[in-house]
Design a binder for these strands. Structure first.
Lengths: 177, 177
DNA sequence: TAGAGAACATGATCGGGATCATGTCCGACG
DNA sequence: CGTCGGACATGATCCCGATCATGTTCTCTA
């Protein structure tokens, strides 16, 4: 895949991190950009009452906290959910590479697609019933491959049992799913 | 605000549209880019069963269907929810303007921030209770201005009554909201 | 080929939020 | 100044989906 970030991070040094390791903390000044090569990273904030609010999850391959390229300090903590491998590059080097207009445009195209997908998913999550959400999912993505229903349940924001009930209802009605 | 799109669309011709007007339809080839100056536009798809799935809403000022800059055909319909004013520019002209690396970078920064905000909201919507979602909202945005609670209810994906109940519970517990 | 683990599937119970109804308060506007 | 609409607020009811429990099937691996 001709991914922008992997092109930019070619020959960047990599670092291995254990599950639970901290990549950066809120309010740290931002010096580096991290391309996640393996594993998954959770971005979270600590709420006043001690609980934590998950802001985002990055799964490989992907740039961790993409928006951090454009601000001075992190606005959340980053923790490895699994053991991870990241490629590390100075922030300014990364931004410099985006001085190439075609790279910047490619990054913009990727990011615009992300926005589109996220907005669509948000609208799906606003639907009130499992049935409507499933309709929406099927319209956007079609019937998943074998073993994919639990991922669908997660995507539409319901529990697997709720989804299975809806599926069996539809199968009883003759649909093939 | 030194917004990228308004800079690019300076001196672009504008068009007025009535509420309900169609800006484009799914599968139309994409020739133009539309900067929404006033009003709001709904992006939707028709599902097989006749119902419509809302994919996105653009409110002024904003580029309508930003991702459409990078694909050949629209993947949804665009309808004016209110009377609207849009600035219209050929797609290639718009992309050409983004050949300026600093404009492309600014657009990327905006879009990356959008992604960040959308992901955060998605995570909030995945929380199971009004209480947790309200906590998350308050951490991210703080207490809203007068007249702002119904917008909060919408943002966190619950009905106003549900939010008011949670609010009164907290006020009874001594919090000032 | 036997066992483990994950997806698939379905039942029972319970609670929280949607929904509908109703009412107050305040600010905008003629 | 009056009234009109929208935010604020709260009560009652109902239903859907979370949750917990239990069991089956499939596939991967030892």
């Amino acid at each position: 895949m001709s991914d922008v970030w992997s092109r930019i991070f070619t020959s960047a040094p990599t670092r291995a991190l254990a599950s639970g390791a901290v990549l950066f903390r809120r309010d740290d000044p931002i010096h580096s950009a991290y391309l996640l090569l393996e594993g998954s990273v959770r971005l979270e904030r600590h709420l006043s009452d001690g609980t934590r609010l998950i802001i985002d999850r990055t799964v490989a391959p992907g740039l961790v906290a993409r928006a951090s390229l454009f601000v001075k300090r992190y606005h959340c903590d980053a923790l490895c959910e699994t053991s991870c491998r990241v490629a590390v590059l100075p922030r300014d080097t990364t931004l410099g590479a985006l001085g190439e207009a075609d790279l910047a445009l490619a990054a913009l195209a990727d990011t615009a697609k992300d926005v589109q997908a996220l907005r669509a998913r948000l609208e799906v999550m606003r639907l009130k019933s499992v049935a409507l959400r499933l309709d929406a999912y099927l319209d956007l993505h079609g019937v998943p491959a074998r073993g994919g229903w639990v991922a669908v349940a997660d995507w539409i924001g319901v529990t697997p049992p709720a989804l299975y009930r809806e599926l069996s209802k539809r199968r009883a009605a003759g649909e093939d799913l």
